[in-house]
Design a protein around this nucleic acid. Sequence first.
DNA 1: GGTGTCCGTGCAACCGTTTGCCTTCGGGCC
DNA 2: GGCCCGAAGGCAAACGGTTGCACGGACACC
Lengths: 353, 353
Amino acid sequence: MPAGQPDAPGGAEGRATIRDVARRAGVSAATVSRALGGDPRISQPTVERVRRAARDLRYVPDATARSLARGRTWTVALVLSRWPGPGEEAWWLPGLIQGFTAAAQAAGYVTLLAAGSGGLTGRHQLLQLLRERRVDGAAVVTGQGYDRLLEELAGRGLPLVAIGRLYPAAPVAWLAPDDVTAGRLATEHLVGLGHRRIALVAGPGELAATVDRSLGYWTALEQAGLETGPVSAAEGYQAAARLVDAHPPPTAFVVAHDLMAVGVLQCLAERGLAVPRQAAVVCLEDGPLAPALRPPLTAVRAPWEELGGRSFRRLAGSLGAGGEDGGVTGGALSPPELVVRGSCGPPPDRGRA
Amino acid sequence: MPAGQPDAPGGAEGRATIRDVARRAGVSAATVSRALGGDPRISQPTVERVRRAARDLRYVPDATARSLARGRTWTVALVLSRWPGPGEEAWWLPGLIQGFTAAAQAAGYVTLLAAGSGGLTGRHQLLQLLRERRVDGAAVVTGQGYDRLLEELAGRGLPLVAIGRLYPAAPVAWLAPDDVTAGRLATEHLVGLGHRRIALVAGPGELAATVDRSLGYWTALEQAGLETGPVSAAEGYQAAARLVDAHPPPTAFVVAHDLMAVGVLQCLAERGLAVPRQAAVVCLEDGPLAPALRPPLTAVRAPWEELGGRSFRRLAGSLGAGGEDGGVTGGALSPPELVVRGSCGPPPDRGRA
DNA sequence: GGTGTCCGTGCAACCGTTTGCCTTCGGGCC
DNA sequence: GGCCCGAAGGCAAACGGTTGCACGGACACC
């Protein structure tokens, strides 16, 4: 807060205070506070009178004063620890934010948005801001990799929840989309269609999501008693190329990220393999590309909005105001949903394989 | 704020107050306040002593108390008037939010996020919330069409800025991406490459963005002394089909929305028209699809982040704290940027046309 | 040596709510 | 009739800063 600037509040000049209401109802301010707060000591008739007076005056209690008196702000911070760089679309963020704020609003909390712009001073400013504003808790959308910010916040004793996987694991409650199940669902779908040679086109290994999604893929194959196909970590096109040229080529491809699916599709098209007739493709991320590509991609959709909502409620749990609790690590999130579009069919050599 | 719940703040137990600092520095609380606030009346030595004491105690002033005393909260609301429905990706929102909060943070303000979930009661809750929390101002990301919420907020005398076009126009300051220039830039690019028959594939006419983008297209053609090609408002594929089958087919397509470009590309591919060799395509919206399609689309990118930043500063203007001002309507935004990728080349019949 | 004028600080009254404790009053009980 | 008790509500002190004004001292000027 820069100092030295003249203060001239913009709006609302005449605003009714609790004392105005008291006067009008012929009681004391204390009584108004209690009547409106539902204190059982205040008699019914009085409560009515106070309510009327408050309504007549359009009285809205001042949260600032309330916070000061009660030592609690009913405010939580949603911290975007790392902003997506240019070119890297955070298409999932709006859903997450929406879910979070909606849940907060429903519980009477207000969401403060804060960006932790990387560097040391940025982090320091952020910490200062959270202390200054006395937020009751914070949810941190972690970048990939371990989050320094998280550590410092935890050190402050601030109720905390992380959104996103933590590497290395930290003693902090966290929630994240269930990427393992995503991988499993997709793979099982393909198995169910009759595919036996299913390849995984994974993303860069340092992405937490990639790791988990791959894990789901392996699990599903194992349970189906199938051998895992070749894995490729390179970007879409080359990856697919290498996989297609395998001895018996795979009949299906599980692609970890939607951008990579573009490359895969292109490669298959060049090889003259029609999707879904001669090759099936399923994407583990239902980004904006999935429905737009030709053919529209069958994909697994993570419940971002729900994730936001549950993150808040988990946080509310540590705030004492009865949200949900649940140990230190990953909470149960409803499983991702398989959105069937047009990119998967049965394998071409059905009778034979 | 639901009442009746026990208040038990989660974190921070022992927190230094201004009086603690005063005691340690051997002065009064008033002096601490003034010293830290840069009041020239306090002598230099005293200021130093106070600063030291404050640092030693890790004193962070309490914004709640400050707000109460000064009648100003240093908080602005960012109101998402209408959340994007499912399937409708708001890929531009993160950029906008980022720009806004960053600017706010830099000016010492904090951003409160609020969702105005449609209905009457939702609006009412929102208004209540803004009054209760005493926000100093609000920026409303408008949905399409006229925004009821905006009207009610303006009625409250709250400093306001709208982000997005207003139809019908309202007496409210607003900022929006410069879609007219976007249309013009794209069209001029094509003209510059030698195209003469340029078609517009516009979106649904009720979208404000569509209207403006089309306007830019017409302007550019007029200035180049060219005739405007046929216009189609239908969705991508059919639109392109109709356009391609015109007498002399267009050599270039200006597509208003990136999702529609998918249809256009597919249509061209089916007609055997290679892009960019035999037809040029330029997109007026640089969404996630643009770089991912084959070929990657040349597109016009709106400066969403800057838009967010300027929106805040415009708001700050009405807050008295020297942001930028500028009448009631549209502020100057730096123009959108043409991102040249692989979908435009010179027209095929260069010598002849 | 008064008196006026700065300069640097302290006093205390705010800002609008909440809440511990006291008061008042009416009634029941010994 | 005195006492205790519960019910209903008021008093005033918080919460942690800000700020108008008074105050004391040093200094200059007449």
